[in-house]
C-alpha cells in the first residue's frame, strides 16, 4: 500500500492509521472505523422538495466496499449518523441492503447510534450500541472531550490559504488524547476545525488536522488552518 495514502495517528497510546478515504484503522485489533455515513441523505432532501441525485448511498457504500477490501478488517464500527434520518433505512433499495449484507459477512459489525439515527432497527445486520470501549479507547458518536475518546458528529474540515489561494478538505482532528473523525458519506459537508465546537473538545488550538488531500495525507497544525 502506498504510504502517502495513510498517516499515523496516536490516541491515548494506541497507534491508528488515518486513511485517505476518511476511515480509521486499528491494525492490532483489525478494526476499521467509519463515521457519519449519512446514507440516504439525498432522498431525505427529496422529501423536503430538494431533489438531490439519489446516488449518494450507492457511492458511499462503494467507498466503504473499497476501504474494507483493502484492510480486510475483522470488525467494523460505524460511528453514528450512519443514516441521515430516522426513516432513511426504510428507503434503502434491495440492492443497497444486499451490499450491506455482503460487507458484513465474516466480520463483526457495530452500529453506534447517532443523533440522526437514534433508533436503529435490528434487520440491518450487526449489533447496535451507544458506545464501545476497547482498551484505553472509547468510540462514541458525539464527542465529550474525554481522554481516549474517538468520535464523529462534527464533520471536521480544514482550510489552508497561501498567496491568495485556498484549499479546503475534510480532516481528522487529534491532540493525541482524543480524536474526531471526518464524515465518510458522499453528501457530507464539513465544519471548520476553528469553530467553537472544536475548542470545547480540545480546550486549545494545540491539535493537529490530518487533512485528506487529493492524493495524500497532510498533518497541519490547527492554528494554521481556517
Amino acid at each position: 500500500m502506498n504510504t502517502m495514502h495513510i498517516a499515523d495517528m496516536t490516541v491515548s497510546g494506541v497507534n491508528f492509521t488515518a486513511d485517505l478515504s476518511g476511515a480509521l484503522y486499528w491494525a492490532d485489533e483489525r478494526l476499521l472505523v467509519v463515521s457519519d455515513l449519512h446514507l440516504e441523505k439525498g432522498s431525505s432532501f427529496a422529501t423536503r422538495g430538494v431533489l438531490l441525485p439519489p446516488h449518494d448511498t450507492t457511492e458511499t457504500l462503494a467507498r466503504l466496499d473499497a476501504v474494507i477490501a483493502r484492510y480486510q478488517p475483522h470488525a467494523v464500527i460505524a460511528l453514528g449518523d450512519s443514516f441521515h434520518d430516522r426513516e432513511a433505512h426504510d428507503r434503502l433499495t434491495a440492492a443497497h441492503r444486499a451490499t450491506l449484507a455482503t460487507l458484513q459477512t465474516g466480520r463483526d459489525w457495530i452500529w453506534i447510534v447517532g443523533n440522526h439515527d437514534p433508533d436503529l432497527p435490528r434487520d440491518l445486520g450487526g449489533s447496535v450500541a451507544s458506545d464501545v470501549g476497547i482498551g484505553p479507547v472509547v468510540f462514541r458518536h458525539e464527542p465529550t472531550g474525554a481522554a481516549g475518546e474517538i468520535a464523529g458528529h462534527l464533520h471536521p474540515k480544514a482550510r489552508v490559504s497561501r498567496r491568495g489561494r485556498s484549499v479546503e478538505r475534510r480532516c481528522f482532528a487529534s491532540d493525541g488524547e482524543r480524536a474526531i473523525m471526518p464524515a465518510f458519506g458522499a453528501y457530507t459537508g464539513g465544519l471548520s476545525i476553528r469553530d467553537l465546537a472544536f475548542a470545547a473538545i480540545f480546550k486549545s488550538l494545540e491539535f493537529t488536522a490530518h487533512v485528506l488531500g487529493d492524493n495524500r495525507m497532510h498533518a497541519i497544525a490547527a492554528a494554521r488552518c481556517y
Binding site: V160, R162, V167, R169, G213, N215, H218, A219, I220, A221
Partner: peptide
C-alpha cells in the same frame, strides 16, 4: 494541485 498547497502548510509544522 491542492496537495502542494497543503504540503506547504504541513511543512510549517515540521519547521516549527
Amino acid at each position: 494541485a491542492s496537495d502542494e498547497l497543503l504540503a506547504e502548510a504541513a511543512e510549517d509544522l515540521v519547521r516549527e
